[in-house]
Design a protein around this nucleic acid. Sequence first.
RNA 1: GGCCGGUUGGCAGAGUGGCUCAUGCAGAGGACUGCAAAUCCUUGUACAUCGGUUCAAUUCCGGUACCGGCCUCCA
Length: 456
Amino acid sequence: MYLFNTLKKRKDEFVPIDESNVRMYVCGPTVYDRAHLGNAKTPVAFDVLYRVLCNKYGKEHVTYVSNITDVDDKILDKHKKTGKPIREITEQTYQWYIDDMAKLNILPPNHRPRATEYIDEMIELVKLLLKEGHAYETNGHVLFDVDSMPGYGFLSGRSMKEMLAGARIEVADYKKNPADFVLWKPSDADQPGWDSPWGYGRPGWHLECSAMSAKLLGNTFDIHGGGADLIFPHHENECAQSMCAHPGEKFANYWVHSGMLMVDGVKMSKSLGNFYTIDEVLEKAPAEALRLMFLTTHYHQPFNFTFEGLEAAKQTLDKFYNALLKVKEIEPKDDASADERVVGALEDDLNTPLALSYIHELVNALNKAEDQDEKQELKGKLLKSAYLLGILWQDPKEWFRGGADDEAQEIEELIAQRAEAKKNKDYALADEIRNNLKARGIILEDSPQGTTWKKA
RNA sequence: GGCCGGUUGGCAGAGUGGCUCAUGCAGAGGACUGCAAAUCCUUGUACAUCGGUUCAAUUCCGGUACCGGCCUCCA
């Protein structure tokens, strides 16, 4: 198995530290508002990776952690703006996020730790960094001392000189080096905070992931993932904290980053008016179409979102489910396993577009299959392969009829009337019935076995 | 200014030092059908540009152009 490793800037053979416990940590969202499309793309990519790892090493041998950041200045801002209690904001947003993830068929990670539940671990980590001489206390803050770490910048490939050339680092006069970042900062009495050796305060963002990953996965684990925008400064700083606090440890062996989401060729942003939340896009298309759409581009590439692309993904699913609908009554072979070409494509740095091309081939073969054995085998292989991608989990009838159950009986009656008209060669009446249903968004399909219907 | 990635047929998007061929959508023709739909068959069109390496480059190396991301909170 191969993964593109940001540490080496190339595809790298994946060798876990312990095959009986493969460990992955992926940075999750800060819960202050509805999750947007970018917040969907990254978890989908890592969900596929999780599925592939489970397939290769066995589900019980993989530990997947994805955190929830529920203490952050953005949450404070939201609280100031809306007046809503912090706890209410984080709980509500957390629930929205979990619901969105479930709709996208993302398997729950083994742990979804919340930052506020690991404050003790964070405080211990800061103490350790102070003791090791990698941090200093000033103005009520505890800062990480980047000059104390030789090689700071190795993950993002930046030298200190380059970082300063950007000249957009927050400069505070109490910092020894402008690149020093906050480990612990003071809170006002009305702000969320915890008592610490440095007074009432709250953790810096980067600290959370270092503390939670160490607690749940150990000081060195296999894969650390997230969106490409986190490489610097977030992941760079996590590396710095974790490696300095635990000398000799490598923190994460493989750093995997998913490409950014764009809309109509440019970055998605509120000011450009091209900003979409997951739930508003799901009003226009099924969640499975959104998931499939992300998989049509390699996870490492930037993804350009368009509603045309979303519609195309829905059409592809129509094709897939149509093939499954035709073999609905056929039991898939129970000892079926995923197509080895699909597994091969996915184990080669999650080449989902290539894997999907094989899914298309399986669907085509299934459409052409004539004898029972062949259909059973292909259906089994298709479903197992699709599971690795997290698609085709629905009942095909449900896919086509979703939300039209209350009309089902009436539609069946109209189909019966039309069959009668066809029998009498009254094609005018037959076509009228079909056209009327079409106007309501119901598509009829005749076959030698009778007539079936779908919702458009 | 620094760092990173991209440029493949009408569109989306993989991949490869030489082979008949990605795949899908769209287009054209056909089969099936009362007509449709779905499905099947056939089919056209491609590797930004300039150099280098090579018997051979879309594929490797270098330059150029253009596009995008990151360098500030961000998945």
